[in-house]
Amino acid sequence: MAGPGGRVQDMSRDCHDGAPQAGAAQMDCVARPERLAALRGRIAALETAGGRSVAARARLSPRETDASGADDALATFRARAGLHDIRPDSYFDAPAAYAFAVRWLAGLPDDRLVVWVRGAGDPRLDFGAPCPDGLAACGLDPARLLLVRARAGADALWAMEEALNAGALVFGEAGAQRAYDLTASRRLQARAAAAGSCVLALASHDASGTSAGLTCWRIAAAPGLAAPWRGAGGLAGLGALRVRAVLERQRGGPPGRFDLEWSDHALCSPEPAGLAGGARPPRRAAG
């Protein structure tokens, strides 16, 4: 399922270290990482009873992913079964948020059915219907996808829950609707955790309100590097897609910021983000 666009490169990361302060003084220096992991595990176990998410959360430290050398910065978040909220940073960043969500689903190791629940025609998320060939280019096999058109907000939420019950991965544009409140997000989170599945809820850029999701992301498009060939009209060609993902909130962990780049070409090696010209700070500060 990896396809041409399955690789995620994490280039700059400025996550705060999430070590709890309490009890740190009593810790033995040698056993400190193990004890930290154990403590985190206990806290997570107190919070939720889902064994699967606990295991994932125990590994939730930026340094550990650095050490392991994993090329997928989102792997730790993706492994957590539950609800993840995604919001574009501004109106025109919505396509980038879609791209982020689709690549999130495409990067999951299992090839389960993916259910894409379209909203009830929210104008703030109206950038067209998914294009099967575009999905394939993102690494998501269109044959895996079921597109659901819901007329009302409640219908969209119902369809998302029903798809979770069937064990599918769900991407819903329901986040833009009024029916999507704390209660609805709690329900989705519980269903997803029970089904061991992942549900992504896309909200509009101006959506407010709280959510019971595990993580909350704010996505902005970022200028990518120029391709090493000439494009049209004297302009440079399009390089790899680059997205700035701000982890605004996560349950049991610190916020963070990721510059992500997906290299669509198998032979093209990703370069560090520091070379990217005109890096734009996100509109809302992290944390």
Binding site: L113, L146, L147, V148, R149, R151, E162, A163, A166
Partner: peptide, 27 residues
Amino acid sequence: AERLAAARLMDRLDARLGAGAAACAEA
């Protein structure tokens, strides 16, 4: 089993949201 589960899910979505609510990609 997975294909069957997808077909059954489609049935339920169509039954509740109206015929034609769930769609698959066609090349």
